[in-house]
Amino acid sequence: MSLIASWIGNIPDFAVPFALAALGLIIIERSGVLALGAEGLMLVGAMSGIGASLMTDGSTVAALIMAMIAAAVVSQLFALMVLIMRINQVIAGLALVFFCQGLTGLCGTLMNWTSRPVSGLSDLSLWPLSELPVLGKLFIQDPVVYLTPIIFLLVVLVLNRTVLGLRLRAVGENPQAADAAGIPVLAYRCAAIAAGSALIGLAGAYISVLSTKMWLADMVGGRGWIAVALVIFARWSPWKALAGAVLFGCIEALIPQMAASGIRLPQYFVFMTPYAVTLGVMIWVAVASRDNSSQPGALGEPFIREERR
């Protein structure tokens, strides 16, 4: 029983990075830009969060905000590549990941930030929910966990209930129509990349600053890629992405529990599980739903104003 309780209590820790990264990706991809660079931007967020925390001696909130800003700034490199230079979005996304892997590894070493512990945020108990049997530990979490559903709600409201969101979706569905309606397509896409990347950076900083409480090179460990798959699995819908993130969180949280309970599984089999599940989900989605209607109509297409011939 206590095993299940502690498993449940660990789920948010693993689910939040997936959820925030997937939400960031949804914002970017709803504007019609195919974003594969989540892994890289999460690393940037993770490293700069720790960096800010160490340099400023303390304020974790400031560290998280710094991480968001850093990821947004680096993402403008991607924006420059895909919006202005119209480089293939897949290649630009991959290049961004490799660049960020190298950059964060180098900076972490040069600044000597590796393996230095930070304080993080203390947990908040939501009394009386925290006194519930079994589920109680779900309500003794750091503040970002409680913030995540609120961020989701805000993003959903903006996307679906504002003119801003309507225009953003129009840019992603049919940029020519949006252009004819007088919407600055590239400006909207650029802003979507910055905003989405800030959330992806927060996801990365959550792993380093709040979860592990230290920086290690390449510590995101493929979660950015899982987030990319999660977005497809969720058909670009934020709520489905949140559900998917919780599902993946459950699986990941199971691994330490199994080790603790003495079940011996090959280590690499355990590391493989999230990816195996990702693969399985992708195949299931491909087989189960034939319609592509929920995918943004212009995903991956660079925007060029119609020119004759």
Partner: peptide, 24 residues
């Protein structure tokens, strides 16, 4: 030049610049 998955009203609203004070 229409956004296919949008409703008629949403498509038309896209090009309008009316009453910023009102809610969506």
């Amino acid at each position: 030049k229409l956004v296919k998955p949008f409703s008629v009203a949403e498509n038309i609203l896209l090009g309008l610049r009316n009453d910023q004070a009102l809610s969506f």
